[in-house]
Design a binder for these strands. Sequence first.
RNA 1: GGUUGCUUAGCUCAGUUGGGAGAGCACUACCUCGACAAGGUAGGGGUCACUGGUUCGAGCCCAGUAGCGACCA
Length: 876
Amino acid sequence: MSKKYEPSKVEEGRYEKWLEEDLFRPDEKGTEPYSVVIPPPNVTGKLHLGHAWDTTLQDIIIRQKRMQGYDTLWLPGMDHAGIATQAKVEEKLAQDSISKYDLGREKFLEKVWDWKEEYADNIRQQWSKVGVSVDYSRERFTLDEGLNKAVNKVFVDLYNKGLIYRGEYIINWDPKAQTALSDIEVDHKDVNGAFYHIKYPIVDGEGEVEIATTRPETMLGDTGVAVHPEDERYQHLIGKKVLLPLVNRELTVVADDYVDREFGTGVVKITPAHDPNDFEIGKRHDLEQMNVMNKDGSMNENAGNYAGMDRFEARKALVKDLKEAGYLIKVEDMTHSVGHSERTGVIVEPRLSTQWFVKMQPLAEQALKNQQTEDKVTFVPERFEKTFNNWMENVHDWVISRQLWWGHRIPAWYHKETGELFVGETAPQDSENWEQDNDVLDTWFSSALWPFSTMGWPDPDAEDFKKYFPTSTLVTGYDIIFFWISRMIFQSLEFTGRAPFKNVLIHGLIRDEQGRKMSKSLGNGIDPMDVIDQYGADALRWFLSNGSSPGQDVRFSYEKMDASWNFINKIWNASRYVVMNLGDFSYDAIDLSGDKTIADKWILARLNQTIEQVTELFEKFEFGEAGRKLYTFIWDDYCDWYIEMSKELLIQGTEKQKVTTKSVLVYVLDQTLRLLHPIMPFVTEEIWEHIPHKGKSLVTADYPETDSRLKNQEAIDNMNMLIELIRSVRTIRLDAKRPLSKEIDILIKTKGEKEKEFLRENHSFIERFCNPNDLVIDTEIEIPGEVKSAVISGAEVYIPLAGLVDVKEEIKRLEKEKEKWQQEINRVEKKLANDKFVKNAPENIVEAEKEKGKDYKEKFEAVTNQIEKLKNIGEG
RNA sequence: GGUUGCUUAGCUCAGUUGGGAGAGCACUACCUCGACAAGGUAGGGGUCACUGGUUCGAGCCCAGUAGCGACCA
């Protein structure tokens, strides 16, 4: 093994080997299934750190379950990502000055499919670098044949149930992508805009009304004006007409509850074709719907002089004209919320348009009701269930049609002559007389079916569906709870009668070092592949699983990656030590039945505790906490103590002891590698191959289980005493400037026979760690004059340092310590004197307090005695 | 406006049934001893945002306040 951990060497070729040996396929022999479907990444995208996080968590779960003997399936796949992919391909074509219309729908789609293949390979490449243990034989794509069949069936069934309808409503329109968007694809951002106050003259009367708007260009589509029915200021206007400035169209003043009297002037313009609320008011009062914009956001012929101008250009021109004509009263600065397309970033226009919708209320009700049953989805962390519920309770109908070419084409046909509508999974018989709907479905419509459509649904005999659905756990970020999780839940309930997964593990977002969201515009994105090249996938995975707590965002930093690498390097070097010392020690020679030293018993007991804790924490998806337990065990217990103590035994021990020591060294390492394997699969497998082992891979090795025979609280207590003793000597050495190379005498006065026997038995460890010239361990000892001392639980430690002890300083230090113990005693005694505490607190807590009190008193007395002695010397 | 998260060491963050405040990095002193100097040993450093409440006992539970963030409207 090399002296340093070299991730590229460790990881190279390893994944390919796993694939060759076909280790990621479900184990048919496994009893209980455990299944996960991957959140399909956008096929023409690139995996970012968020994906790396997401897939790492899934891999950790699935690898542990696989080792634990479950029949594990992790199903991979990708998403066709309608708008994003189509936009990319269009962009690419535009470089050659080709538009999609030049090619036509069919040719264009061929181009997109080519792209898809290329990018899918990239993504698989990236997955392999991360080390994901997915079953590629089951890889699916949201647009493949089986999934298309599922999508059509769902569409047709929902339509037949009346849960899908087509109609003309106000939707969010993306003028750049030129498609409809659903509510949640719109980001509302506060922007600095203006509040324009405009005069609308009253027809057949005196004066004018003042109307304020943030979007003056839409006034060209005004077909009414509204006031609140109880607004005393405007009672006289109701039913009258006002004149639309510049255009000179007469608008009726209507009364409607919707109007907020407090906001602006209390009079609002009504533009039914360009505002969702105005649309509703317009319906109620039978106002005309006048569309003044084209699909690209420019003004259309209804805009008169402004036709052809972009909407923002038109706004400027219009304001200028209003001002010149004397209609503009004032312009106030105002920050207001403006919808932006989540995809293209442009300002979204509310637009009157004919689209397909999913009627949400019945589906949402069903989903909410299901959360009250045994079949509920368990959200981790819990609080996200509330997020889900709140959204479901307030959900609006879902616009599912998109004016794109790339996607599932809507299975609806219109009769060329009669215009009759046909909805079906296949085209009508006389297809030549029909024309299929040009639009495609929202990508999320197909993603919503992912957990069951990938498993063969709607085929009633699909084996995977029967065996692996509902899936066990879904892992994803909180940013797509609405987009995806919610929709999977209601679609699954509607079509399979079951929730699609038992658990949803929700994680946060990865931010940059300064806590900013990573984004293209900021240029602060970090490519996980670069991180892997630099630190290795295992280090990245360790950071991703260990650096956070559930549901919280995490900041990426190279400093954390350094720490991550350091840890793996530590494991690497500890393993190197084990390998170097094993020699030709074989797997069959491993024998834990021999006489064990305190070190052996202790490390095995600590291993057992660690297995227990890690297993419990994994069960709760607490990978960060589990990682911390492993870190402490490996670094502090195994490396700092066990390995150091094993050196004594491997050099000075008997042959029998050497066998036991080697056995424990390799046994604990083996178990630890297994515990770590789900988190850092590459390096653990590499090390495992260097140590004696049986079986072909850790991937399918057994996960450690606790062994009650290894429990040993006494060994843990004794070892703690030994550690405390060694530390106290080290502190004194440092304090007295007596490094380990310089010999000193160590006198240990134990509390009783038990401690004396234990320390005498283990004198060789004390000698190794403390390097004494003379070591005395007894219940009564002669203490010389000039000493430095320490009090530990069960013993007092004295180190004679003739000529080196500043008695005054030493007394000062001891006084300080005495004070500390006095305070502790006071605290404990106060507690124990409190009847309520003794009565109410659990017995073990009270008992522990009593123990502490005893220990503190012993230490207090020992320190007091030492002070007395030093004082005598000072006087003598 | 509604919902929600965060506020703990210089920095980044853990702290899950309420029972002596932790890690990594940074800092100080010392150490090349054959696993590891990207290391070892020992150490310094905190009014757990604030106010009140519940409790024998609160970083943790409850109510409120402030600052920052997210989501929804």
